[in-house]
Design a protein around this nucleic acid. Structure first.
Lengths: 158, 158
DNA sequence: ACTGAGAATGCATACTAATGCTACTTAGCG
DNA sequence: CGCTAAGTAGCATTAGTATGCATTCTCAGT
């Protein structure tokens, strides 16, 4: 599958945002449990693509994703550039959308969202890795969610 | 020399802030020019101490100091350990739960919540002493709320 | 369908980093 | 002094990561 690369990299982002992962082999095992069976080589390349760094922490080396890689100019990057890199998951209920991002990037993405000034969106609230978007209606929510999902898919245009 | 360690690490920080360094051997060569002659082992330990990460950039792997390493928060305690101490009040409407914590602890608790990766929870957003949790449904909310209430009661099991 | 261009991946291996162990230096103490 | 404990750093080795090359897979164009 061609699409699997993107999905896999997404899974990687989510795993790394959620747990503490210290080696590619460790990551490989986790991915296995989720149905992906790839070699360390592939992971090395994925981590490079995703700009995921290995940083020393109190508890040893850990992989962490950062916004640095995706941000072309300080915080002014368009949504289309940010989402593929930073969005981890998208979901919603009623007139609300919850958008999960790589840890630490919620503010950045929310900012980009605000700059879009969509009439469908009443406002956004961002924490560390989660953004809550209040939409004008359920229909509005659907529109927005669809668009975001699309933007997140490829490094394409608006 | 004993005191040289501190100086050397200082030099390392400066070098890394100034040039693009991609390997410990490279760093070693630079230090040599500045009068320090140490082995790769030592540099590995220095870089660990300084929390310097190796991140993939456009031009290959580079060592960078700071941000990511410093951003690293330490509170990785499990929910069961946190809640009895930090949760103040629990309430909810529709598919949302509002969890009040001791002032300043919301981020910590929210983080622990995220790490649980419950399918019932779309996401959490934390302020200073309040966490908003968006659940997948009202039923999900009830499940989550019940569980949280239980966990908060005492240092019990997951 | 057939085919050439690229993308994606695995394999084997080169490269780089982390670490157990030992030695040495220094400071404090009897 | 001689001894011990703490802190550093080197050496040798292991652990872990990156990458050249070959193969396989996709897909557009014919």
């Amino acid at each position: 599958m061609t699409a699997s690369k993107r999905e896999r990299q997404h899974a990687i982002l989510e795993l790394i945002g959620t747990r503490e992962i210290g080696s590619q082999e460790e990551l490989r095992q986790l991915l296995l449990k989720h149905g992906w069976d790839v070699t360390q080589s592939t992971l090395s390349r994925d981590l490079r693509d995703l700009r995921i760094a290995r940083v020393p922490t109190d508890r040893g080396l850990r992989y962490v994703a950062g916004a640095e890689g995706a941000m072309e100019d300080g915080g002014r990057a368009p949504l289309a550039a940010l989402l593929p890199q930073l969005m981890v998951r998208l979901d919603g209920v009623a007139h609300q959308i919850v958008l999960r991002t790589v840890t630490g990037s919620a503010q950045t993405v929310a900012h980009a969202l605000d700059r879009e000034a969509s009439p469908d969106i009443l406002g956004t609230i961002a924490g560390d890795d989660t953004i809550l978007m209040i939409c004008r209606s359920e229909q509005a929510r659907e529109r927005v969610a669809r668009r975001l999902a699309l933007l997140a898919r490829r490094p394409g245009r608006t």
